[in-house]
Design a protein around this nucleic acid. Structure first.
Lengths: 223, 223
DNA sequence: CTTAAATGATAGTATTACTATTATATTAGC
DNA sequence: GCTAATATAATAGTAATACTATCATTTAAG
């Protein structure tokens, strides 16, 4: 069984949590707690207590809670990129690749046994519920330079290139996919919490249909 | 000169800030401060000091900062709805109405002299930078019942109805417009702060083109 | 002129987001 | 097996935040 390692920029941690047992427990438990109580309610104190360690120890890995969230979310995008690459091996048409990418964005993930300390399905729910919080801050420009949004940028670039294969004249591929990706997140949230903002029934098929149709119609050349 | 009053649900304040001079000063100054330092950095203490009042007095109007933000954002959607209604008087085709709605979402607003205590242009920038924070919380379900997202829901409904006039068979009008509205916000943010996520140049024309084309192509029946 | 309501002044509390210090345990190199 | 470095634990402390409470004063309404 081969071991897979998702690499996250070293600006996103103080000490690499993937390298130690305590680090992995921090990751694992913070995912669990964030899903349970939401980002705002999580504190380093609570994480520390839950893994029977101390606040100071958690601070050795992450400068603050914001950096921890950014780490987790970048890990998610890194992970998604790996998944996409795997899937694209057997997909030949750009259209099928985009369709599959949308499915991956919206469908619940299943646990990768090679990475026991990260619960991918839970992490995905955290991304849905917390994602915009990592860039909607006054520090966005500094953090952008430090690579806080690298994972998202890359996914967006990859999908843009595929779209340009379908229609090289399409003017807004990056705007389109940043929109699609964020809609993939927010529609999941709306179905659950603000249903008047969506037409999808629970279950992900409607969202997939909505996004796929939107994407393909938009890219298509006006003949 | 007629006076215009945007009404916001009474669940969004403790004491109506529009009814007193102090209340209006709180609104005015909190808009100013939120734009300057961002939502996270604003405190009731800072607002109070800036208007030469006290923390306790600000708490008499809003239960907490989150409620204040929700109030301001709902005010914005109420305002936008009024603007839309005005504009639609002279617009006849549903297509033109949608086009104009997108323009309004993205173009900088100009100050309404009838409401001197609210700087609409600044408020719009706050909505761009802070909007998702009002629903991405663990209290979303409770707050939804209390009408925290009423303004957004309404705009979304209005635009959905117009879209259905163009194509009554379109399956996802609410999903489409919640996506379009949130893209209108986030593209403005991306152009400024995360340019790899957008193809638009600064200035709002590109964003308008992107969103208009996306909307119309998506709604159109597949013949 | 009286009373109620709004505001100001001040104080206090629990929690948070850290920083610092020292002690102890573990590990790696010699 | 000893030493030195490193990681972690234990504990304490600070400044800021997000409130709540109390009481005095001003203002406005009948």
């Amino acid at each position: 069984m081969n071991v897979l390692n998702i690499t996250v920029s070293n600006k996103l941690y103080h000490k690499n949590p993937e390298e130690t047992d305590l680090g992995k427990r921090i990751l694992s438990k913070s995912i669990e707690l964030m899903e349970q109580m939401g980002y705002e309610q999580v504190t380093f104190k609570k994480i520390a207590t839950a893994i029977e360690s101390t606040e100071a120890s958690v601070y050795r890995y992450f400068q603050n809670k914001h950096q921890l969230l950014a780490y987790l979310i970048n890990w998610y995008w890194g992970w998604l990129e790996v998944k996409l690459a795997q899937e694209f091996i057997v997909l030949n048409s750009p259209e099928n690749k985009l369709k599959r990418a949308i499915q991956l964005l919206v469908s619940p993930m299943d646990q990768d046994a090679r990475i026991p300390h990260i619960n991918e399905a839970t992490l995905q729910r955290i991304v849905v519920a917390e994602y915009p919080k990592i860039y909607l801050t006054k520090e966005v420009d500094v953090e952008n330079k430090e690579g806080y949004f690298h994972g998202y940028n890359r996914i967006c670039d990859i999908l843009s290139l595929i779209a340009l294969q379908i229609n090289p004249a399409y003017r807004f591929p990056h705007s389109l996919f940043s929109t699609i990706i964020s809609a993939a997140q927010s529609q999941q949230f709306f179905v659950k919490h603000l249903p008047r903002l969506s037409d999808a029934k629970s279950g992900c098929e409607d969202i997939i249909d909505f996004l796929t149709e939107l994407t393909l119609k938009t890219i298509k050349t006006d003949e």
